[in-house]
């Protein structure tokens, strides 16, 4: 099985003088669902932002799709804690943001989108059961519907690796479980790798593997340990 994320002796943080976390060894394979838990401020988001190539590691090896470079356009989908949607724009507009990864810069900027891009947007919206909300601004949608839009956006971009940062945290249990089911069903049926930072331990253990960032007793930084399920 080919590894999508490959980590060796990774040191993360915001400066070399203050290392937040160290990950000795981690391989996440294609199609795997991995969850990360840990207390607030321990470095979960920083780790995910490193995986998303939004931050550079302080030291160590971090390969995404077997490369140290940024993954090719559209291959990596990142869902931040607050989802990163344009809240006063419509569902269509937000999902289209993902789909433009499949067309040229000129087309995406000028708005003359290709037929296949439009189809991708419509298919993703349909799959997420949002067809009746297509022209609705995000701010008028419920928390669960907003998460479905975020998933539809990564679907439209055709992401092979999805990094989701506590994106179920503000939902009630029933809705959160529902969104989790939708997400896991989608990634499993499409052989997509999902790394999700999760607050709820019960839900986190539903993943194939669960890791916890724990504070190292002797030092300030935290380390990533696999949790027995």
């Amino acid at each position: 099985m080919s590894s999508v994320i490959n980590v060796e002796n990774l040191k993360i943080g915001y400066s070399s003088s203050s290392i937040l976390a160290i990950v000795d060894n981690l391989q996440i394979n294609k199609g795997e669902i991995v969850s990360i838990i840990g207390e607030s401020g321990i470095g979960k988001t920083t780790l995910l932002r490193n995986f998303a190539k939004l931050l550079s590691p302080i030291d160590g090896k971090l390969l995404i799709f077997d490369s140290q470079l940024k993954p090719e356009r559209g291959k990596l989908g990142y869902i931040p804690q607050k989802l990163g949607l344009i809240t006063h724009e419509t569902v269509y507009f937000n999902v289209l943001e993902g789909a433009i990864c499949h067309e040229s810069l000129l087309r995406s900027i000028t708005g003359f989108h290709e037929e296949k891009v439009i189809n991708k947007v419509e298919d993703s919206i349909k799959l997420m059961n949002l067809s009746d909300k297509i022209d609705e601004p995000i701010k008028y949608l419920s928390g669960g519907q907003q998460r479905r839009v975020a998933i539809a956006r990564t679907m439209a971009q055709g992401a092979k690796l999805i990094l989701a940062d506590e994106f179920l945290s503000e939902l009630d249990d029933k809705t959160a479980n529902n969104v989790w089911n939708i997400m896991s069903e989608y990634v499993r049926s499409n052989d997509i790798t999902l790394v999700i930072v999760e607050h709820n331990v019960e839900r986190a253990k539903l993943a194939d593997r669960c890791f916890e960032l724990v504070r190292n007793q002797d030092s300030d930084f935290s380390v990533l340990l696999e949790v027995d399920k």
Binding site: R49, A52, K53, L54, K70, P71, E72, R73, G74, K75, L76, G77, Y78, I79, P80, Q81, K82, L83, G84, L85, I86, E97, G98, I100, C101, S108, R153, Q157, A159, L163
Partner: peptide
């Protein structure tokens, strides 16, 4: 957040 999501996407 929206900037991060777009950057990670490779836009």
């Amino acid at each position: 957040d929206p900037l991060d999501a777009a950057r990670a996407m490779g836009l």
